[in-house]
Design a protein around this nucleic acid. Structure first.
Lengths: 130, 130
DNA sequence: AGTGAAATTTAGAATTATTCTAATTCCAGT
DNA sequence: ACTGGAATTAGAATAATTCTAAATTTCACT
């Protein structure tokens, strides 16, 4: 009988202590940290962790679906503990990034998919304002 | 009497030949060029134009509302001759960026504005797919 | 427990995109 | 022509991220 991985959340293949430290940082902070902020915080818990490892871990965790990467406007990527679909509002003056919800999106996504030649995977809406 | 620049759009303060070259490149190409592509193309018309000037011109033209900057996902900003509101679809596999329209957005924008604490300026929707 | 292969981490170099600096040049208005 | 402010230039500087090569850890299998 094959060894079973109980999907997603439960058993995480290769969750090293570095990756775990990075995950903990993202999860215990109020979202939207940049890689270098995460590097600094993870370094406090795990002195000596390198930048490359933080980036590798962030990619690994993102691909594993445990965290989410947001790339908005110019500048550094940010990482979010929220993995459910939601949207963002960005202040055009100060750059603040806030979460908000637009439930109507699911309907829009089908419409959008029909309209483009794309097989839709996800839809993200960004509001710019003050 | 003021010196008049006879350019297509109404009154353009300070449309130097460098800025005009950059504008022409963006307008005569099928959209979505990166700054370095624009630098290369503008350099063909105006040998010696510098990177800084291309960036300065792109910012100037963007602020003047003559072109539009799109920053999607990771990577370089792209510049678009289209200045009307529209949305983008990005291929998660190959990175292709395509335009498409979602007219329903204007209604959504008001809803979104109400829901966030933002004074809405614009709303941009990004579809990820294949 | 011992071994080797594979995966991971590390430090630092390299890359890419963009901005900054300081010197020079260009113009519109006297 | 002269002048001051804006624009341009070359190249250095910065920031974010990825790459490289070596060292280390992990893990399945003896």
């Amino acid at each position: 009988m094959k060894r079973q991985f109980s999907t997603e959340q439960a058993s995480l293949p290769k969750l090293t202590k570095q990756r775990e430290a990075v995950l903990t940082v993202v999860r215990t902070n109020d979202a939207h940290l940049t890689a270098s902020e995460i590097y600094a915080l993870a370094g406090a818990k795990l002195p000596g962790i390198s930048y490359a490892t933080v980036y590798n871990s962030l990619r690994f965790l993102t691909e594993a679906g445990l965290i989410n990467e947001i790339t908005f406007g110019a500048g550094a990527s940010r990482f979010d503990r929220r993995i459910d679909r939601h949207d963002h509002a960005i202040c055009t003056a100060c750059g603040t990034l806030a979460d908000f919800e637009v439930e109507e999106i699911s309907g829009l996504m089908q419409m959008a998919a029909r309209r483009s030649k794309f097989k839709a995977e996800s839809l993200h809406l960004t509001l710019y304002g003050l």
